[in-house]
């Protein structure tokens, strides 16, 4: 990459930052001038201070660990189930038709609607959150991987048949590699969903993680701390997306592009 391109990128970033920074400064000035008294708004400087305090006493780090642990475990379990079912439905038309009604009946249930049952059955903690996140993550992976398997070049399947590959090897050597770029897009989509669902479960019921942190800060009338948690969740979501996009590019190279248009 030439120096010029780097300079251009930096210039672009600086320009893009002008508006949000100006808005923040304006809000800060307004908050100071009007002696803002609110239980749901706080001056940006107070939010930054609260964020620093939450880092200093490790509370936000512990909450981040809890949320990400639940989100990623749920994502992993949901991905495995979704992928297995997606491949099976993609390969077998009969199975797909047999299961269609069942899948379409369960899929529209909002994962959050399971909370009351999940609370009684599983109690507070990671388990309940993981189950709900996994439930939410199964569907996008299932549907996209089913579509991915179906759109595999038919000649590849013919080759596997000509080679008399056993079913397991056919899945392992032909289907997964061929469908992987599109499956990864589904995984990226689900990763976003996992974080949203994990935080929502914590806001609604579970007394751990970043969502519970927001609720506790709100109930303690600490609008600054509540907004600090909100900003931090935004940062995590942004970082997660960057990591996944970079991973997608590095793992699949040009194939990643075809996946994105899927």
């Amino acid at each position: 990459m030439s120096d010029n391109t780097a300079k251009n990128t930096a210039k672009h970033t600086a320009k893009a930052l002008v508006l949000p920074v100006a808005l923040l400064v304006a809000f800060e000035v307004w908050a100071r001038a009007t002696h803002l008294q609110s239980d749901s708004l706080a001056a940006p400087s107070d939010v930054v201070r609260a964020l620093a305090e939450a880092f200093a006493d490790f509370s936000i780090l512990i909450a981040t660990r809890d949320t990400l642990f639940s989100a990623f475990t749920g994502l992993a379990i949901g991905s495995i189930i979704g992928l297995a079912l997606g491949i099976a439905f993609g390969l077998s038309n009969t199975l797909n038709r047999l299961m269609e009604v069942t899948v379409e009946a369960i899929r529209p249930i909002p994962s959050i609607a399971l909370l009351p049952i999940a609370l009684i059955a599983l109690g507070f903690g990671y388990r309940m959150e993981i189950v709900i996140v996994a439930f939410a993550c199964v569907w996008p992976i299932l549907i996209l991987s089913r579509a991915a398997v179906r759109s595999i070049e038919p000649r590849l399947m013919e080759v596997s048949r000509a080679l008399r590959l056993p079913a397991a090897q056919r899945v392992w050597k032909i289907i997964i590699p061929a469908a992987l770029p599109r499956i990864f897009v589904a995984f990226r989509l689900s990763a976003g969903i996992a974080l949203i669902v994990a935080v929502t479960v914590e806001i609604a019921i579970n007394p751990i993680g970043l969502g519970a942190g927001i609720m506790l800060a709100q109930q303690a009338l600490r609008a600054d701390l509540m907004l600090a948690y909100l900003v931090w969740i935004g940062v995590i979501g942004y970082a997660l997306n960057i990591v996944l996009v970079v991973a997608q590019r590095r793992l699949f190279g040009r194939a990643a592009l075809s996946g994105d248009s899927a």
Binding site: L119, G123, F124, I203, P207, M215, Q219
Partner: peptide
């Protein structure tokens, strides 16, 4: 002590043995 966000969640939390 465990902080609970909404009071109406307490009965379910007791029954699940979380508290």
């Amino acid at each position: 002590m465990t902080p609970i966000g909404i009071n109406s969640n307490i009965p379910a939390a007791i029954l699940s043995n979380s508290i």
